[in-house]
Design a binder for these strands. Structure first.
Lengths: 217, 217
DNA sequence: ACTTCAGAACTAGACCGTCCAGTTCTCATC
DNA sequence: GATGAGAACTGGACGGTCTAGTTCTGAAGT
């Protein structure tokens, strides 16, 4: 029937447009006020839609919240997940690690993703499944991808990590831990700029290579 | 007048006992339900006290919440903050780092402290000052203490860290990042046991010494 | 006698979800 | 291109529920 069953509707029908408007307004509202603090009337008003339409599209406040979080994690997932070319020499390895760290930091250290993380953490007891999905699609996936790469580099003698998962975990958190955990509690007021991200990434690579490189950088 | 202005009342008067009962009940309730989800009627009932008494002792829901969080952070602060004897040889250094990491993990990785952290993170926009206090009395203080120690060890030639703050930050998160961030999103269902904590601590020390030790472990 | 508190009712307001009458859009058919 | 049926939407009101905070009465303790 309809040929335009597009997954990413550029010019969608009225219903779909309203649905997207509600989702956008709900995202803003939940990020700002939290789950209990968010107001369905306000979401409807902000999206220029009646409450009836909100409930027709999403059924309940819970369902809307779940949709907001999963759609945001999915979008972030796409931006992070691009297979990088693996290095084949010591110099290429160092550059590869730095680029990976810098890109990961650049994508993740944004006010919206930090606020999403706060939101989900605060609702762990109410929505444990959502939090688990965020963990699996975030840190866990990053560490799995890294572990695969590190395992192959170990096989080629470019790294010395008998347990690639451990090395991947340590590299991941050497890069992400300080900025993320600082942002969690100190707010988005002083998120690190690009220069600071590069400093963090560089020292993380140095420490990592000292521990898992062939003969120290 | 009253001679018994004890800071830590072992056997306090009725008023003080009721105050403590309210504080205990409020702590449980806020940890379980969050700020907006907590119910003042329930807190009064759980502490065997009338709402009038609750409001006489703590003024408002906000004030009670602030008191709950600050008293918990203060208590945790006391348990973490004991000056350790600094090492004076390479072997003592390794043992010192391991003991420090293991103790830090043991104290922090408890369901109540993890839940407190989730609670405060979820309320960052409503109570930014509380979150800042938690950060300063938690990770920040730990890193400052470590930086001081590392600076002296660098002076004695036991470490090679021209920037002790950077080394302290990296050691702290090598130890804490994986367990804490996993617990934040995956819940308290599978908090690491002592054996796992020792594995994490040991590998953290190894990586740290490879990067900041004098000639590798 | 005098303070203190329990217990319960009460105020004032917020909010989720529903309902309905009237309007607007979409799209197949003519 | 006009038309008409049916789906989608609006705007507002509203029921029922919940909650923070106040107030009142009576009892208990000192």
């Amino acid at each position: 029937m309809a040929v335009e069953e597009d997954a990413v509707p550029v010019e969608a029908g009225r219903s779909e447009r309203k649905r997207q408007a509600v989702l956008a307004a709900a995202t803003e509202t939940f990020l700002k006020a939290g789950y209990l603090g968010a107001n369905m009337d306000e979401i409807a008003a902000m999206s220029g839609v009646s409450k009836q339409t909100v409930y027709k599209n999403f059924g309940s406040k819970e369902a809307l919240f779940i949709e907001v979080v999963t759609s945001m994690t999915g979008a972030a997932d796409l931006r992070v997940h691009t297979a990088p070319a693996e290095p084949d020499s010591a110099e290429a390895l160092e550059q590869f690690l730095f680029d990976y760290a810098h890109r990961q930091l650049s994508v993740v250290m944004t006010p919206r993703l930090m606020q999403l993380r706060r939101l989900v953490i605060g609702e762990v007891s109410r929505f444990p499944d959502l939090a688990q999905v965020l963990y699996e699609r975030g840190p866990q996936r990053a560490m799995q991808v890294l572990a695969g790469i590190f395992g192959r580099l170990d096989g080629r003698g470019l790294l010395a990590c008998p347990e690639p998962e451990v090395a991947a975990t340590n590299f991941n958190w050497l890069v992400m831990a300080e900025p993320v955990n600082r942002a969690m509690l100190m707010g988005d007021g002083e998120l690190p700029d690009d220069a600071q991200l590069r400093v963090v990434a560089k020292e993380a690579v140095r420490v990592f290579l000292a521990a898992y490189g062939r003969q120290g950088s």
